[in-house]
Design a protein around this nucleic acid. Sequence first.
RNA 1: GGGGAGAUACCAAAGUGGCCAACUGGGUCUGACUGUAACUCAGAUGACGUACGUCUUCGUAGGUUCGAAUCCUGCUCUCCCCA
Length: 376
Amino acid sequence: MQFELKHTADESKARAGRITTDHGVIETPIFMPVGTAGSVKGIHKRDLKEDIGAQIILGNTYHLYLRPGLSIIEQAGGLHKFNGWDGPILTDSGGYQVFSLGDIRKLSEEGAKFQSHIDGSAHLFTPENVMDTQRTIGADIMMAFDECTPGDAEYEYARKSMEMTQRWLDRCWNQFVKTSPKYGYSQSLFPIVQGAVYPDLRAKSAQSVLQYNADGYAIGGLSVGEPEKDMYAMIEVVNEILPENRPRYLMGVGTPVNILEGIDRGVDMFDCVMPTRNGRNGMLFTSKGIMNMRNKKWADDFSPVDPDGTSFVDHQYSRAFLRHLIIAGEMLGAQIASQHNLAFYLWLVKEARKHILDNTFKSWKEEMVRQLSVRL
RNA sequence: GGGGAGAUACCAAAGUGGCCAACUGGGUCUGACUGUAACUCAGAUGACGUACGUCUUCGUAGGUUCGAAUCCUGCUCUCCCCA
């Protein structure tokens, strides 16, 4: 994997770049749709690629390991062959599940023991076997196994957690270099910076991660309950330290505004379940603001879903019809909303890239941020 | 014509003397959702008031009772069975 930094915007740290993987090119800044179980919920590959314009998608180690299981994925010849997505894939390591499944897992120096959310069976995830699993899944970008520290963690907890993530990273890296790709294309491993909302911990974590000279670096443990201003502050601290010539991935973020603020602070890659999950739950993100499609005011609005939208669903269906589908619990409603949101997210980062390249990012961003917060 | 059952809030449906402005579903309204245990979750849903509360409700008109959605009587309507 290679990263080429094309341009940094005036009056901003926003960057335009290009990542080249064996499965294709990614133009940054980029938003990566989340396909936890190997599928971006409700979205066909064709729409993902041609309508939405996704350049890379996510998968999840924990979920795929549990179901369908590694044997099936290996038999298929890796996740790309299995799900038919021939572009780049990034897999999360299960580190987020250490956070989100807090009630059904036990943490130790060795790793995290999960109680499967599917059948209750016990599974030990270690930095080593998580690397092996991601080799088997065949992700173009593998993520280090970390503890995603909760946003409200006390300093001492955050320090110990961050230090353990560091030790885990070392074990990840050893296993990574000791093993080889299984399917004939190369894989990268991204370390993850932790440290909760404490600048000194973040700085320390970012410094320590540099020793691996990785192909890219991630900022984790944000948008997990901490105030937004803390999130932005941490991004600033970390990006001051991370190398210019490597992509920076802000994990799990976020709202359209979060993404623009992240780009402004020098982040290149984002992923988030919001466009799909909130879409399924009836919320639309548009360039004019947020729409809650369950609100009655859309019931007799027969205008297009989003006249400015780039997806065919934006013009094919009316707001009234989409609202009807969502209220009626029709699958198509969730699909349309998800597809619209993803197309909007991809439009947003593409637009950001354009404005970075022609040095109009800052003013464009300010105007967009104002607009995006409006509730329609 | 004879026999039986029933009428409760937008709908369905509990409640059968005080803990009932009335369980529970659905519907409706409003929120929340950030490396997906999530097409999920939370709140509201007679009126007025921020609230303690006040007022009007359980087909309808009366009655019994300290007190009635609940008991009694008349009326109206609905459904089922037999002719």
